[in-house]
Design a binder for these strands. Structure first.
Lengths: 168, 168
DNA sequence: GAATCTAAGTTAGAGCTCTAATGCTCGTCA
DNA sequence: TGACGAGCATTAGAGCTCTAACTTAGATTC
């Protein structure tokens, strides 16, 4: 380790020793939120890295994935599936549309609704990206037993319930 | 439920039935990544909501928290603690500095390093925000037994290891 | 039939995030 | 001593994300 890094590291440890007593009301390592955030950061970073060669971002892949399973869905419904707000989805879809990976056509009955669909190019990109993303998911799944996977999914589900209940 | 929503919902189900066969190589519900992402989205949304009255974003709170535990730390080291890149931390710190919640002073020995510290105002905002954030963490912790908390943290830790190993 | 309500789509603005690239300081090593 | 390498800080540019606000279309209700 180099001296520059050592010095900031040394300062850090010294200050930590001095002030560690009771700066915050809960140690970071005991916060479940920290673990969830770290896991998501690692997931995001890895997915972004493997999706890069496919030419799509994580958000774009998420949209393409749900779009491939729900052709003609509205942008608002797609936003709900992806867990983002309509303006966010609008941003993502505009980028996909600029690259001609999707098309948006007026709904036959409801003038206020746009049907969103993959183009042929979009389907091709989606297939490539999906293969790459699934490779990561399979590696992740292979790390655990069936019981562990179920436990993790269950615990995370309870987190979501609690957090949504707790939201003002 | 209204007709507008019903129609998109109906279309969705119809299309799903038609195409469900084998559009993707792995069902979304079986992807551990989906569960992690959902949990982080719920966490983020709830934390943003409870931090809003304190006048800070989640990213700003994260920086203030680690800053309060490590006075004088460099921006790069702070970025590592928060799990973001230096340019990202620079953006967050600029916003905090504009509001006079932090100050950055040249390092005594190393001309190339800036020491970052909370101002008095920053400490006050941090104390307020921390109380609000910890309330959420306590509620989250109270949802689980000691064994469940340990299991969740352990499983998420293994996810992080696998994902970093898998990253090209 | 008109007021009201709900949902879809959009725009504006603020903030976070990344990669890529640059300039700087310092330490190491030949 | 001088070249190299590593780390810090910063800028530029693209993209994602949110809230707030507006517009429009369709449905409900009186």
């Amino acid at each position: 380790m180099l001296v520059n890094a050592l010095i900031t590291q040394r300062d850090l440890i010294a200050e930590r020793g001095r002030y560690h007593a009771q700066m915050t009301s809960m140690p970071v390592s005991e916060r479940l939120g920290s673990h969830i955030k770290r896991a998501e950061q690692a997931l995001s970073a890895t997915k972004a890295a493997v999706l890069r060669p496919a030419g799509v971002t994580v958000a774009q892949y998420s949209a393409l994935l749900h779009l491939s399973e729900n052709p003609g869905i509205s942008a608002a419904a797609l936003a709900r599936l992806c867990g983002v707000t309509p303006p966010t989805m609008n941003t993502v879809l505009n980028n996909l549309q600029d690259r001609a990976l999707i098309e948006r056509t007026p709904h036959e009955w409801h003038r206020n609704v746009l049907e969103t669909r993959l183009t042929d190019a979009g389907r091709a990109v989606m297939a490539d990206a999906d293969a790459r993303a699934v490779r990561v998911e399979r590696a992740l799944a292979a790390e655990f037993t069936d019981e562990e996977r179920a436990a993790l999914a269950g615990l995370l589900g309870r987190c979501v319930e609690l957090l949504e209940r707790e939201r003002p």
